[in-house]
Amino acid sequence: MLIDKYKDEITEILSRYPVKRSALIPLLYVAQRDQGYVSESVMQEIAHLLRLTPPQVYETITFYTMFNLKPMGKFHIQVCKSLMCALVGSDTVIEWIRAKLGIAPGESTVDGLFSFSLVECLAACGTGPMMQINDDYYEQLTEDKLDRILADLRSTGTSRLKSGPFMWPEPVNVKR
């Protein structure tokens, strides 16, 4: 049960809102962090906790794109395909990933390591092409950078190439 495992965190989340239902999305995040996806039994548990019916949880969760209703690969690669990234080459990135991982958008690698999706604009249009892997952004992608990211993830589970606090152009570049 989620509540047993994350009691304090859940209590804290509930304390932020005067109306319980507001805690729905935060609790779904807790669940997704725990398992990588949100299972039906967790939805039922959350419904119970918030005094909602399971359909009320279900209608909400299916409206948003960030919740997985089934298990995903360990690394969920999401490439932005909106216009701004497309202008600077996101289609190429998509092709590279397809070639390197051998999976099309919507699929996962058989080793369960990578899932691949296309998403809409992630607010990094000035630093495209870009992708998000799990919680992290990777920007200004090149083929070489992509290779290093995938290699890093495979070997260490993380990559130093992910973005830090965002600023572009960076101050050093600003010589005006």
Binding site: A23, L50, Y64
Partner: peptide, 27 residues
């Protein structure tokens, strides 16, 4: 002040959809 994360829906930038979403509903 509390941070409340959305979950992937452009429409939730529209102010009333944002409020619905913040109430735990569909945006």
């Amino acid at each position: 002040v509390w941070v409340h994360r959305g979950a992937g829906a452009y429409i939730c930038g529209e102010e009333t959809a944002l409020l619905e979403s913040l109430e735990g509903k569909r945006g």
